[in-house]
Design a protein around this nucleic acid. Structure first.
Lengths: 243, 243
DNA sequence: AAGTTTGTTCCGTGACACGGAACGCGACGG
DNA sequence: CCGTCGCGTTCCGTGTCACGGAACAAACTT
């Protein structure tokens, strides 16, 4: 019952949208009868919403998701620094953490002229294809980097780094400079620069600026990104006694 | 099973936090045995996370919640206008929709010196105690206003309006001016000004600026709030063919 | 050392989740 | 106008697994 319910909810990952009963049953590998009953319960409980014959995720999930502790707290303390960064660059600003081998985006703020990117709040992208991911990977200990480099590297565009040797030298460069770059590795026409947010020696999060490729001026963006990341690191220090 | 699981998740509303097994069982009115089993399933499925003997909401909920359609779409198109508003006022900016008799906040952006407020993303406050709520109530049709005014009005502070007659004249004033005010009705020392976001004749959302009481200059804030709301209304028009 | 509260395991019973089969309906298409 | 298809929905018999009381181990409090 519970398993089937969560399986049904997971049908909506990672893209969201609306589904009809039969399609839900097919994607969840459940019988139509069971789907009908479970989906009915989910609607009654507010986890799904029904509009005609279409089902979508319900508002209760939004409210529960907003309460998830680490995500909410980090986002709240990071927001002012992200605002600073946005104001000084006027480009799309990202903020994310690591979960396993993905970066999970906690915040993404932009103006009217945002670049097209696969990132979205609550969404996931491979560590190795994004600037934020590389910044996190470079400061998450050598074990993780070794493990990631041992497997085939995921590829989002033709520019995504697939050569582990090249990625390792990139990580070493990141560890020296404290800045991570990414050029069209996540989306064509977009480049990124990111800096890790530290709690001690390991990165607990990272923030980045995404810029159209032709406007990418790393030397100009670096100080702003670094300043925001350092400021956030310092702010996290006092209350972040949680090991 | 499903009911009990959702009951357990709802223990975390509206404040979030961490709970131990016995406290979860008590708050959910479930036997300790059942709580133990269901909570174990929830952890296995990612809806809860366990740290020692403490349970908190899990990252899966954050990711699912970020996919809830109306919330996500509205937030995404509203964000640039909220940024404009924040930049021109440098005060806490809110964006919310109506759900039943509450306002649900979809976004809340602020700088380093944010005022203390009970609002939070995904949180709820009574329609009648907030500027956003009044703006929504004034443009949600007379039936809702009549129903709300017929019942006792909720009260968050000693300044919250409890007299239905006074609230009705306030709503009429909002319908004329297109702007809603609130002075210390949600939190002491904080005043707000809000404007509705229209889709046709009804408000589908509203945005506001929250300011420390002593700095509150309505005449100065009004144009910025109105401009942001109108711009957002216009942007929502073309793609918002959904009745 | 006795008592209290914690998380956890065990187990017998009974409710209810399960999915196959069948139904009503609307949309096509011959 | 009548088949057929796919849809959502209802029904029902079977079997399972959810349920909670009782008991246990461990960690604190007194």
């Amino acid at each position: 019952m519970l398993d089937k319910a969560v399986t049904l909810l997971n049908v909506y990952r990672p893209a969201g949208g609306s589904f009809r009963l039969t399609e839900l049953a097919a994607r969840a590998n459940l019988s139509k009868t069971t789907t009908f009953r479970v989906v009915g319960d989910l609607v009654r409980l507010g986890l799904l919403e029904r509009e005609g014959e279409w089902y979508r995720l319900g508002g209760t999930l939004f409210e529960l998701g907003s309460l998830v502790p680490r995500r909410h707290d980090l986002r709240e303390t990071a927001l002012p620094f992200l605002q600073d960064l946005f104001e000084s660059t006027r480009q799309t600003v990202h903020f994310g953490i690591r979960d396993n081998r993905d970066v999970v985006y906690l915040e993404r703020i932009h103006g009217h002229d945002a670049v097209a990117l696969p990132s979205r709040i609550g969404g996931r992208l491979p560590l190795t294809c994004t600037a934020i991911g590389k910044a996190l990977l470079a400061f998450s200990g050598p074990e993780l980097a070794d493990a990631v480099l041992a497997d085939p590297l995921p590829q989002l565009t033709s520019y995504s780094i697939t050569d582990p040797v090249r990625l390792r030298t990139a990580l070493e460069q990141i560890q020296i400079s404290g800045l991570a770059y990414e050029e069209q590795e996540a989306a064509l026409g977009v480049s990124c620069i990111a800096a890790p947010v530290f709690s001690g020696a390991v990165a607990v999060a990272a923030l980045s600026v995404a810029v159209p490729r032709e406007q990418f001026r790393p030397a100009h963006l670096a100080p702003a990104v670094r300043t925001a990341a350092l400021g956030l690191s310092r702010t996290l220090r006092p209350p972040a006694a949680r090991g």
